[in-house]
């Protein structure tokens, strides 16, 4: 599948020297392993370059100030060309280093005209009631839709509310454009499993088959086929609670459940399944009793208090 990136998921908050952010690299390497490729809209490329140019200028300025400071103390600094020393990163090359095929796509005249119309008439994916419609976002939306129309399916990864918000739901569904608000979310949507999802899957393996959710009135064996939107919360008693959305499938039949569970170390303590979209029996399955262990949390808290109390 071709995956379209928005600039807000490239995490470029400083000058990139020779490698993208660790999280981005890990995601891209995972995609490369599964044969996906990357599309960078030219709008995104320009935004990335614009930001990197600013960071580069700031770094060169720092070096010039440092040089002047050294020279004021009689320490000669010569033969350094800061413009050559501090280079601008090449986004496409950085992506290729992750093992992925990458292409830059430019908007067509039709893209410009459609984006213009969307902006003027506040047509989706615009957020209702928004004060302005960002032309750059609308161009990226147009290009992402084009990729999806060409291939029958594509993915857009963006944190931006215009690109990933409910305003674009209908059109995204119509053209099979999958969307994800984060790299983790993208892994889950692509069924590549984030670290968090893998943890949940492993824990749910401890639930007896007879206790796993079944659609009321449904037939056949339902298997858990994907987990997404996972988050964890540590408790003071040393246990951890987690929440996720699971999809169970039996052939072409699917249903989604909300999963809440608590675990301690590798041991699942209990899990609760709640319906999202279909009739379902809410069931809390108790697996084991927790062994109370708050000593570690207490020890860490006391160690931190010692430092904060010092005068």
């Amino acid at each position: 599948m071709r995956i379209v990136f928005n600039s807000d998921v490239l995490f470029a908050t400083q000058l990139i020297k020779d490698v993208l952010n660790r999280k981005v690299v890990e995601f891209m390497q995972e995609c490369a392993r599964h044969g996906h490729s990357v599309v960078i809209p030219s709008t995104v490329l320009y935004e990335f370059q614009f930001k990197q140019q600013g960071y580069r200028a700031a770094e060169i300025n720092k070096l010039k100030i440092a040089k002047a400071s050294l020279e004021s103390w009689g320490i000669a600094v010569s033969g350094l060309d800061f413009e050559l020393l501090v280079s601008e990163p090449d986004l496409c090359e950085l992506i290729k280093h992750c093992g992925l095929k990458v292409e830059v796509v430019s908007p067509t005249m039709a893209n410009y005209e459609n984006a213009h119309r969307r902006a003027c008439f506040h047509i989706p994916p615009a957020v209702p009631g928004a004060k302005s419609d960002e032309m750059r976002d609308l161009l990226i939306w147009e290009m992402a839709l084009d990729v999806s129309k060409q291939d029958g399916q594509a993915m857009l990864i963006a944190q931006d509310k215009v690109l990933c918000g409910p305003g674009g739901d209908e059109e995204a569904k119509q053209y099979n454009l999958l969307r994800a608000e984060s790299l983790d979310n993208a892994l889950d949507v692509l069924n590549l499993s984030s670290i968090s999802s893998q943890k949940i899957l492993k824990l749910l393996g401890q639930v007896p088959v007879i206790k796993q959710p079944k659609k009321l009135g449904g037939f056949g064996d339902y298997q858990l086929c994907s987990i997404r939107d996972v988050y964890f919360v540590n408790q003071k008693n040393g246990c951890t609670k987690a929440s996720a959305e699971g999809t169970y499938a039996s052939g072409k039949n699917r249903f989604r459940v909300k999963i809440e569970l608590e675990f301690q170390g590798q041991d699942l303590l209990w899990v609760m399944y709640s319906p999202i979209e279909s009739d379902f029996k809410v069931e809390r399955v108790l697996i084991a009793d927790p062994v109370m262990d708050s000593d570690k949390v207490l020890e860490l808290n006391n160690a931190l208090r010692d430092i904060l109390k010092e005068e």
């Binding site: 983790d184 984030s194 670290i195 968090s196 943890k199 996972v230 988050y231 964890f232 919360v233 540590n234 408790q235 003071k236 949390v297 860490l300 808290n301 160690a303 931190l304």
Partner: peptide, 13 residues
């Protein structure tokens, strides 16, 4: 807290 998510804080691995 001590290199771990503090109790009560939402996190992902």
């Amino acid at each position: 807290l001590g290199g771990n998510p503090a109790p009560g804080i939402s996190y992902r691995l």
